[in-house]
Simulated scan of single mutants.
Amino acid sequence: MTDTTKRPATRDRERTRQAVLTATGQLLQERGMRFSIADVAAAADISKGGVLYHFPNREALLAAVVEHAIARFRSEVMDHTDIAENRAGKLLRGYVRALCGGSEEAIRTFAPFTHWAGIEEIPEIAELLRADAEWWRTALLRDGLSASRTHTVRFAAEGVAAAIASDVSYITDDELALTRAALLELAEPAPDGSDR
């Protein structure tokens, strides 16, 4: 078998895998944890065996969806981080920009975790979420601002993202703009180098 005959099959497998992950993510948003492998197969327009070829069971599928969401979220935050900002709080400002209206993808990726009640009861997923929280904690604390300021801004930005993602008009455009500006200001080092 030559390289050229292997590539299309690999692309088809990857497309199928992505279709399964997308379908599962949509089902999680629509139904929470109330869906089966057969539901995923129907939503992805493949056979149940096709789903099981890529993911041996529901827990492995859910873990892959969470891993994918974690990677997408990190990527979105990095896309909103200005690497030219050579001062403390650079990553935290990217986090605020992404979650406070700068990235629909980041909000969609972050917000589902608030709606997927019960997913953290799967041990592998609980570990993924713990590791991701620790990764963010470490990365943001290395960003140069105090822990109290970093945590306050981070958790406020996450609350804003949850408000934006809700189906009700909890936060207006004006409130969002004011809050985003205030959080970005809090994520800046003081001119005198103190941590206000």
Rank of each mutant, 00 (worst) to 15 (best):
T114R: 03
P56D: 15
S103A: 03
D195T: 09
L99K: 06
A161W: 01
E85R: 13
H115L: 07
P8I: 13
A42C: 06
R11M: 12
V160T: 08
D12H: 13
E76C: 01
A117I: 04
L91C: 02
L186N: 08
A44R: 09
Q18S: 14
A190E: 08
E67V: 00
L61S: 14
G118W: 06
A181Q: 11
P8F: 15
R180V: 03
M78Y: 13
V40L: 11
Q26W: 06
S47W: 11
R137L: 01
T150G: 08
T5N: 11
T81W: 07
G32C: 04
P123H: 02
E105R: 12
A161C: 04
D45E: 15
A126M: 01
G25D: 09
F110N: 10
T81Q: 10
M1C: 10
P191T: 04
R93S: 10
A69E: 15
T5Q: 13
A156F: 06
S169K: 14
L91G: 02
L140I: 06
C100L: 03
A23K: 07
T2L: 07
R34W: 06
G89A: 04
T114G: 07
L186A: 15
I107F: 00
S146V: 05
W135T: 12
A156K: 00
Q26A: 14
Y170L: 15
F110M: 09
P56I: 10
W116H: 09
L52R: 13
W116C: 04
K6A: 15
A126T: 02
E120S: 12
D192W: 00
A181R: 10
I107V: 13
R130E: 09
A63V: 08
L183A: 02
V153E: 02
E121N: 11
S36I: 09
Y170V: 15
S75R: 13
G159Y: 05
T2K: 01
K90L: 08
A64D: 08
E76P: 03
R196G: 11
A117E: 00
D192T: 02
A63H: 06
E120C: 03
S103P: 01
R108S: 08
A64F: 05
N57R: 07
A19P: 11
G50L: 11
H115N: 05
V51S: 09
L141H: 15
R180T: 06
P189D: 04
R108G: 08
D45P: 02
P123L: 02
S148I: 08
T5R: 07
T179E: 00
R72Y: 03
T16N: 07
G144P: 02
P8S: 12
I70Y: 00
A43F: 02
D143E: 11
T114H: 06
A190S: 07
A84P: 00
E158I: 03
A60S: 09
L92Q: 02
A190H: 09
G50Y: 12
E158F: 00
